[in-house]
Write a protein that binds this DNA or RNA. Sequence first.
DNA 1: TAATAGAGAATTTTT
DNA 2: TTCTCTATTA
Length: 791
Amino acid sequence: MTEFDDSDAFEAAIPLSQRAMAARPAPYLDGLNPAQRAAVESLDGPVLLLAGAGTGKTRALTTRIAHILMQGLARPGQILAVTFTNKAAHEMKERIGRLLGQTVEGMPWLGTFHSVSVKILRRHAELVGNGDLHLKPSFTILDTDDQLRLLKQLIAAEGIDEKRWPARQLAGLIDGWKNRALTPARVPKSDARAYDGRGVALYRAYQDRLLALNAVDFGDLLLHCVSIFQAHPDVLDQWRERFRYILVDEYQDTNTAQYLWLRLLAQGHRNICVVGDDDQSIYGWRGAEVDNILRFESDFPGAQVIRLEQNYRSTAHILAAASGLIAANQGRLGKTLWTEAEGGEKVRLIGHWDSEAEARWIGEEIEAFHGGHRHSIGQRSLNQIAILVRASHQMRAFEDRFMTIGLPYRVIGGPRFYERQEIRDAMAYFRLAVSPADDLAFERIVNLPRRGLGDKAVQVIQREARDRGLSLLEGAAAVVASGALGGKGAAALRAFTQNMGRWHADTLDAGVNHVELAERILDESGYTAMWQNDKSPDAPGRLDNLKELVKALEDFDNLQGFLEHVALVMDRESGDAVEQVSIMTLHAAKGLEYPIVFLPGWEDGLFPSQRSMDETGNRGLEEERRLAYVGLTRAEDLATISFAGNRRLYGQWQSSLPSRFIDELPQDHIEVLTPPGLYGGGYGAAAQVAGSTAMHDRAARADVYNSPGWRRMQERAGQRAQAVHRKPVVIDAEPAAEFSVGDRVFHQKFGKGTIMGIAEDTLTVQFQTGFKTVKASYVQPGDSAGGDVPF
DNA sequence: TAATAGAGAATTTTT
DNA sequence: TTCTCTATTA
């Protein structure tokens, strides 16, 4: 094993006098509440830190690390601290540095699960492999794009109809196995039928192919580490000795592979401290196991459980509303958030006619807050306001509206910089220049811009490369030399291979500046020109992105270093110098906080999501409820929940009912608003009505919030844990009104399905095979077979 | 080989 | 509705 090379500059940087102070109460402990203090000072043995939203979790965690260092219990290189995102890791580094009064360079093992795993794996790459083929320490890390392309090739090679069996599905399957730390050999029999019975075989083929490419995917980083630890006790022992203290952030989001990874490393000294909140577990769909946190105490007997329950973020009303909602979930570890803060506004609730009215109203509210026209709230910067949606398609309505009224906004968590097409293309050029054997990169750019090298030419190159055991780039050179390709394509391919050879030589030449080289590659390849000639409206933006990419290179010594960085750190800070309202999904909002939060789209089927409930039943519903809890607890001063009676989905208007979560909100902490109606009076009853013609009945829509129906719904909130399937109040006799969202129906051709939306006499139904829009007269109600509706 | 028309699908997302 | 992917046509 290679020698550890961590710089312990950090230790040297702490003056002895300061270290001696550790015996006395240290300044960094000032201001901690008793629970936080316990979290910082309980250093021996396993600790489960249950940290509710806004309770100072990061502060506790970073102070704990600072405390370990100041006590001299471990050197920076002996502390393993893992997070899920680079952002969280950065923030922790920064805060530790601040606590200790210097920048932290010496915390080499504070990082994401993946970045720490890469470091470990590079040192033991040779232990991964079969027979004579082994992973080399220089392995590359594939992103999801590459992964999918590779799988498509394998599927095509197997002669499988990709229409019936999409590559995405296989990718999801393999990811799922990797999340559960299952190598192809360990996949259980119960999964044997997956993907037309060929899932496991394709998984094995995929792993072989990765090995041949000397590549790993994201899941492999964890999986290979776990496999190495399990198969090589001596290696595991080295790491166990090294990491004297282990800290884990967001423990409720760990999947099985991460869980095993941690357990293996922590089992020696058991100095492991995990921080999490079971109520904020919202990533079950990507493999996170809430059970990991629920059973921590049995995994590590004698574990101390410390609860951080004092909330420093939200008003009492917001906390009470959130707590009341989450109380409907079963099997929680249980926490009671409290605050010293008094007063504040109740959580506001409002219904709208449709999603456009909702966007319009929220836009006006924001303008009012911004202009200081709401005295109780005061004048607010747009940066203090966020809109949190369940699904990204909801963002459209807000973007459209804000664009027309000229309200500046930013979408957080959209396509990330390094995931954009032009950036990936450019990166593929750099990758191929740096590693000429990168076949995936070759395939991506060989005909980009168009060089007259279509499928046929690529096939010729592939055959040549396969037959002679060459990389695609070498194969291409061979094709050029042999003249197997004629005409225009031959000249283009010659130029391409020659250019690439020259650029590769340049990457090895220390005299060539890598930033200039990158620019030259993009220009000489014709890639820049391709976008300059492109007439589409987003072409200028793409050129700007390319410029930015080249600029980002300046922070690195060479192209290799840059590529390594990008593989793992796919985020970029977006400056928030400008005042903008933030729009994002609820998932993206986790860990953030805003004084003013809007939570639109609380409608059954959208939130909670029908799909989530269909797929995982009550578990899905509970995760949706946690998502609602996360949303509410983002708000510091004011939260506003809203729903719309009609929403355009896939181009069709559909009517829907208020979310069942609304019924679960404790009434005492909610203020129901009556929106200004189109016709001068209150309206919103549309939400109660299926079938659009009924909406013309103004009497029915007036003042629904004081109607018996609304009150009844409020009263039923308590009993709703087991959730009865709610039927809408049917006011008119339109045929469509006989159905309601969530009903099970049967269609002659498509079979059984669940109604997702209703518009006039057209239903949007989710069948086994997917979404279909069908006329109501073509389906029969029923099949429900009683108990199979999971909610 | 490249442009184009039509079909089909359509949460949530970090690394 | 809108995007992506495939099959067809020039």
